[in-house]
Design a protein around this nucleic acid. Structure first.
Length: 424
RNA sequence: GGAGAGAUGGCCGAGUGGUCUAAGGCGCACGCCUGGAGAGCGUGUAUACGCCAAAAGCGUAUCAUGGGUUCGAAUCCCAUUCUCUCCGCCA
């Protein structure tokens, strides 16, 4: 959520920057500013009225104590009108505030100045490309053939017991999942992140805090009987740990890492995009989250992209880093780098990580503040990134490291899998 | 799921209708004292919104949350949430 003060002082800037995300903000911003003026007026009136009432009540109290009940009772008469008026004013104030809030949450975060203005994924800016891409002529199989050949995943069993998009990992496939999770967590811990095990269901306030609500309602699974959402990413519980928290300077930066299963409804997807492991309703992910002071958040973003880069090198996968264009960015993000692994069997790039700086957009929603050296409080910056999402990493490993007799496990992962080759 | 107890400032904790502008303590900051430190003494120590060009200052709200009673609520009433104890169920 953008800060009201900032909008009030920079309405044109807000509208202009949001155009990069292809969001027409002018009308909303105008309405918000009008409501804001009305709010301050109403609040002033109410405050003055309450001050009068308070003074009056004190006077009455004194009269009663000194035994002048007749005078006190007379004064009491004059309070009824004030009371009614202040009741009406505070109702109006509540309505205006609700109105402002409802409109404020519709505005996406401002994109960073480096964000390209494009509309679609093709407009994303390719920053770096690492590793050698396997050529189309190498006759590589797509991963869904390999998972069947080596009995790593049973998609049909998942369909039977739950539905499409809920795979069952078996044998070496299951072991590979566990190996990757442990590998990713260990690497993050080595890099200074604190390990967290969060709940997989969150309440409405948490889903709102990180920006899934109201923007992405319908993409989350809802346990309706208890009004709890299944998390689409560990970002939600882990960042919300700090909702309504006032951090000390010495607490920063906070670096947390969490593995979780992730649940996404992903309505309306079809075709090759969802084939095999490309898109699932339930998947595993290790997520890193940082909370920093504003002046250092872009250093943290660099640190996080460097971490993800290191992981992909250790897995010996060809990948590229892209800076998302305005049209492809998420609602809450100010700057996002996607990491895409080239899947040789499909001859296409698969997004395996998304690393974002949300600046104070999330912290404003969840009142995540810190106290600086001078003792002043301000909103902290929040960042997160996948490090990494498993399914497409598995797809990349299978498709790129396949050979005639099996699939080679990269060196760094062997201590975790306990085997160096996946064999039939 | 049932019964009971509870929720007060950064922390502990007093406070059962008006002197609460929340006692007292701890912590923290600054000052005095000291060769230095400690002890001691003194002062200060929440958040949000508003008024003001700004600071100072002032006003309003906040004693878990939301409603209510009252001229006036931390205090009384109702609902909700959470914590603890006991019982039930349970991996």
């Amino acid at each position: 959520m953008l800060q009201l003060n900032f909008i009030r002082e920079n309405p044109e800037l807000v509208c202009k920057r949001l155009l990069v995300k292809h969001f027409e903000a002018e009308e909303l911003v105008r309405e918000i500013m009008e409501l804001d003026t009305k709010r301050r007026e109403t609040q002033k009136n109410l405050d003055d009225l309450l001050a009068e009432s308070n003074a009056l009540a004190k006077e009455i109290g004194k009269l009663f104590q000194t035994g002048r009940t007749a005078e006190a009772n007379q004064l009491k008469q004059s309070t009824a009108e004030k009371k009614e008026l202040s009741r009406r004013l505070s109702e109006t104030l509540d309505m205006i505030q609700q109105d402002i809030h409802d409109k404020l949450v519709l505005l996406p975060n401002l994109p960073h100045t480096s964000v390209p203005a494009g509309r679609h994924a093709e407009d994303n800016e390719i920053i770096e490309t690492h590793g050698k891409l396997p050529a189309a002529g190498e006759n590589l199989s797509p991963h869904w053939e390999l998972t069947t050949k080596y009995k790593l995943i049973d998609f049909e069993a998942g369909s039977k017991i739950t539905g499409a998009g809920f795979p069952v990992y078996t044998g070496q496939g299951a072991r590979l999942q566990r190996a990757l999770i442990n590998f990713f967590i260990d690497e993050a811990v080595k890099a200074g992140y604190q390990e967290i095990q969060p709940p997989y269901l969150v309440n409405e306030a948490s889903a709102f805090g990180t920006g899934q609500l109201p923007d992405k309602d319908g993409q989350m699974y809802l346990a309706g009987l208890d009004q709890l959402y299944l998390i689409p990413t560990a970002e939600v519980p882990v960042t919300n740990l700090y909702r309504d928290v006032l951090l000390k300077m010495s607490d920063l930066p906070i670096r947390n890492v969490a593995y979780s299963a992730c649940f996404r409804r992903e309505a309306g997807s079809y075709g090759k995009d969802v084939r095999g492991l490309n898109r699932l309703h339930q998947f595993d992910k290790v997520e890193i989250v940082q909370i920093t002071q504003p002046s250092l958040s872009y250093d943290s973003l660099r640190e996080m992209t460097a971490h993800v880069t290191g992981l992909l090198h250790k897995l010996e996968l060809p990948f590229r880093i892209v800076r998302l264009c305005g049209g492809d960015m998420s609602f809450a993000s100010a700057l996002t780098y996607d990491f895409e692994v080239f899947a040789g069997g499909q001859q296409r790039w698969l997004e395996v990580s998304s690393v974002s700086n949300f600046e104070n957009f999330q912290s404003n929603r969840m009142k995540l503040r810190f106290k600086n050296e001078e003792g002043k409080t301000g909103l902290a910056h929040t960042l997160n990134g996948s490090a990494l999402a498993l399914p497409r990493i598995v797809a990349g490993l299978l498709e790129n490291h396949q050979h005639a007799n099996g699939i080679r496990i990269p060196e760094a992962l062997i201590p975790y899998t306990g085997f160096d080759t996946i064999k039939a």
